[in-house]
Design a binder for these strands. Sequence first.
DNA 1: ACCGGAGCCTGTTAGC
DNA 2: TGCTAACAGGCTCCGG
Length: 270
Amino acid sequence: MPELPEVETTVRGLRRNLLGRSIVGVYNNWPRHIVNVSVEELRDRISGAKIDSIHRRGKYLIFTLSSNESLVIHLKMSGSLAFVDQVEPTDPYAHTVFNVGGKHELRFHDVRKFGRVYLVQQSSEIVGDLGPEPLDESFSPELFYTMLHGKKRLLKPLLLDQTFIAGIGNIYADEALHWAEIDPRRQSDTLSKLESDTLHMGIRHVLNLAIERNGSSISSYRKPDGDPGNMQDSLKVYGQAGMPCPRCGNKIERIKLGSRSTHFCPACQK
DNA sequence: ACCGGAGCCTGTTAGC
DNA sequence: TGCTAACAGGCTCCGG
């Protein structure tokens, strides 16, 4: 589910409420949620630690603790994080819950249980292999062109490869390619400099717009305050198979690419 | 190096 | 209306 914009929205929402608070307890009812330590060890090591900062890297959330360790969370397909008053009714899908500051909880709600929690000395142990951040200054059009020509792969699956570029998922890959009028079935090293520059712009445009709109809530994604995002209403191709392309009016198609559903307009994406 | 398929889970939706 | 199969925003592992 959540891609870069949804994770970024979550991070921004959590910063407002969590910075400076101490973790006082951990509850878990699905041990596989927590990857590299037991629930007991996690509880022992983070209880009493203060949350010093919250960052995003790709689709990971990184909580830096005063104990000099980092709590790293990946929401995977159906995860969301909610900051709630402890008196809120129990959520049966909140498989991991952090008690923060006594009267509040950070609840990791995750219906499909794919989400993961790690406790590490250095966040690089988890996020070290990720590709560049698409919204960073350092991710230049020139760098992107070089990256694309360093591979011979189908464009769409390449954009989903987190070691190639971090944070893009199925929705925003399709949206960025549509914005740039580029066919998702193209080979990465066949893009001209102009096409590469346009796709670079499309990626940034689509991600920034989605952040501005607090992400896409197609089914389960929620902001930390429980409200949905708004970007789902602005999607041009994702989930729009059979509908007219908003740019040229031709029918949007859905195909499989890299075993992921891919939505595009065969008329205006060349 | 790259691709496709299976697996991890459960809920919702499309189709018969 | 009711059942079944397909599908879902992610990612990893495996074999070819």
